[in-house]
Computed example of a mutant assay.
Amino acid sequence: MKVDLSPIAEICGTSGSAAYFFCGQHAGGDKMSSDLWDKPIELMIDSDHFRSVANSRDAIAYLMSSWPTKGGKSFSAARRACLGAIDGKVDSATAKRAFIRAAMEAGILRP
């Protein structure tokens, strides 16, 4: 069954391959495993809870669904970098650095 992913691509401003990745239909094979970050990033959800983000797929899911302050330079840069990493066009370390900057700006990076 072919799924129309154009709404995802339009909302996220991403290419079709990243949209397929979100739905578990990524055709890139091993790209997913190579995106695992060397050390997960921990985000504060509240004073007693945190979330661990281990790759660009986790990062973009958190950015789009649970980020406290959508918008701004760091948020946009992290979104673009993580989507680029999912597409295989951006190095995963670059995506991780962008995500860390956005988390710091949002005040949710766990020390």
Rank of each mutant, 00 (worst) to 15 (best):
residue 10 E to P: 05
residue 60 I to A: 11
residue 2 K to L: 05
residue 78 A to E: 04
residue 25 Q to H: 08
residue 104 M to A: 11
residue 5 L to A: 02
residue 23 C to T: 15
residue 72 G to I: 10
residue 81 A to M: 08
residue 52 S to A: 10
residue 105 E to I: 05
residue 110 R to I: 01
residue 86 I to N: 04
residue 75 F to T: 01
residue 66 S to G: 10
residue 38 D to K: 12
residue 68 P to F: 12
residue 46 D to H: 10
residue 20 Y to G: 09
residue 103 A to K: 00
residue 23 C to Y: 14
residue 24 G to T: 15
residue 71 G to Y: 06
residue 55 N to A: 14
residue 28 G to N: 02
residue 111 P to W: 11
residue 31 K to C: 08
residue 12 C to E: 14
residue 93 A to Y: 02
residue 83 L to Y: 14
residue 92 S to M: 08
residue 72 G to H: 11
residue 6 S to K: 04
residue 111 P to S: 11
residue 67 W to H: 15
residue 109 L to S: 02
residue 27 A to H: 13
residue 108 I to R: 10
residue 18 A to S: 10
residue 58 D to G: 01
residue 7 P to M: 03
residue 105 E to D: 11
residue 8 I to R: 00
residue 111 P to K: 12
residue 14 T to H: 03
residue 21 F to P: 04
residue 97 R to L: 00
residue 58 D to L: 03
residue 107 G to V: 06
residue 52 S to I: 07
residue 50 F to G: 13
residue 20 Y to D: 13
residue 13 G to Q: 10
residue 57 R to D: 09
residue 111 P to L: 11
residue 45 I to S: 06
residue 4 D to N: 10
residue 3 V to N: 11
residue 2 K to V: 08
residue 63 L to Q: 12
residue 94 T to M: 05
residue 57 R to E: 09
residue 6 S to C: 01
residue 88 G to H: 04
residue 32 M to V: 06
residue 90 V to Y: 12
residue 90 V to D: 09
residue 109 L to F: 01
residue 21 F to G: 15
residue 67 W to V: 10
residue 86 I to R: 01
residue 1 M to L: 13
residue 97 R to D: 02
residue 98 A to M: 01
residue 16 G to H: 12
residue 57 R to I: 09
residue 47 S to A: 14
residue 108 I to M: 07
residue 51 R to Y: 04
residue 85 A to C: 11
residue 88 G to Y: 03
residue 24 G to L: 13
residue 24 G to V: 15
residue 17 S to C: 02
residue 36 L to K: 12
residue 31 K to F: 12
residue 26 H to N: 13
residue 40 P to T: 08
residue 42 E to V: 08
residue 54 A to Q: 06
residue 89 K to P: 07
residue 104 M to S: 12
residue 37 W to Y: 07
residue 79 R to A: 03
residue 95 A to E: 04
residue 64 M to H: 15
residue 3 V to A: 10
residue 4 D to T: 04
residue 65 S to K: 10
residue 13 G to D: 06
residue 28 G to Q: 02
residue 80 R to L: 03
residue 39 K to C: 08
residue 27 A to W: 14
residue 73 K to Q: 06
residue 49 H to T: 12
residue 47 S to Q: 15
residue 111 P to A: 13
residue 53 V to T: 05
residue 49 H to Y: 12
residue 2 K to P: 15
residue 25 Q to A: 10
residue 46 D to K: 09
residue 34 S to P: 09
residue 45 I to T: 05
residue 56 S to I: 00
residue 5 L to R: 03
